[in-house]
Design a protein around this nucleic acid. Structure first.
Lengths: 124, 124
DNA sequence: GGAAGTACTATCCTTTAGGAAACTGCCACA
DNA sequence: TGTGGCAGTTTCCTAAAGGATAGTACTTCC
């Protein structure tokens, strides 16, 4: 019996896989989703605001991740001419297109917790 | 002026952030989405099938990632009593609940490529 | 004029992820 | 009986990710 042909090398499937890799590489790292999720809630936030919101992140990581996100034009960085100079970080219009994805992520995570709870409570 | 209160510590928001962390930790690593995406297409696949489908993965990583996914009951592992023993990996019913999430991931990645194409072609 | 706040950068260090290669064990086919 | 396919495990190694700490520069408040 000959080995059956690969199923995965159709053009549409290749594109799909590539797309998943692209998305995950743009959103890679421990903190990107936290930052984006926080910016969805609090519209405009400064560097120190983000530090306070995101539990456990350090200045180096926050700075680096913000640069990554800005480079991919998902967030904007605006220097405000306030008394002590502040910087406002916010989602761009393009960054807001991530909202459905982040919602799915959150939704699945919440259902995951519930599924564990159910699993434990009926002694499955 | 007092510093404005944190926006992010409402219960719903904490839960949301936790949920995102949960999801990402379950689906962490370079290969999980590739494996799941492949299993969505090809219903039941053996270890070597997966090796062939997933470009670049090695036996160690495939083995480890499959164990992780099985532990989280996202995939099933069935030893078939075929002539040379084979193993069938497949998504569980629960694993199939990831399909919308993976679709969002793919959809966003495809639109990302298009946005870059548009950006380049009109010299923006 | 010293403390405290904003916004970082730089350095050093440890941990972890992941790749390469070799090896095991089983079976079938020729 | 030895070659090749299936299904992995084990070991070794490197590169990347990320944390801790310290330092810079500017301002304003007291």
């Amino acid at each position: 019996m000959k080995k059956k042909a690969v199923v995965n090398n159709t053009p549409t499937c290749q594109i799909r896989m590539q797309a998943i890799s692209d998305t995950m590489s743009i959103l890679s790292g421990k903190w990107k989703f936290h930052i984006l999720g926080t910016l969805i809630e609090g519209n405009k936030l400064g560097f120190m605001d983000l530090m306070r919101e995101i539990n456990g992140i350090g200045t180096k990581m926050l700075s680096k991740e913000l640069q990554d996100l800005e480079m991919n034009r998902l967030i904007s960085r605006t220097v405000m001419k306030t008394k002590p100079i502040t910087v406002a970080y916010a989602l761009t219009e393009y960054g807001k297109t991530l909202a459905p994805l982040i919602d799915e992520l959150a939704k699945w995570g919440i259902e995951y917790r519930q599924s564990i709870y159910v699993m434990n409570s009926n002694g499955e």
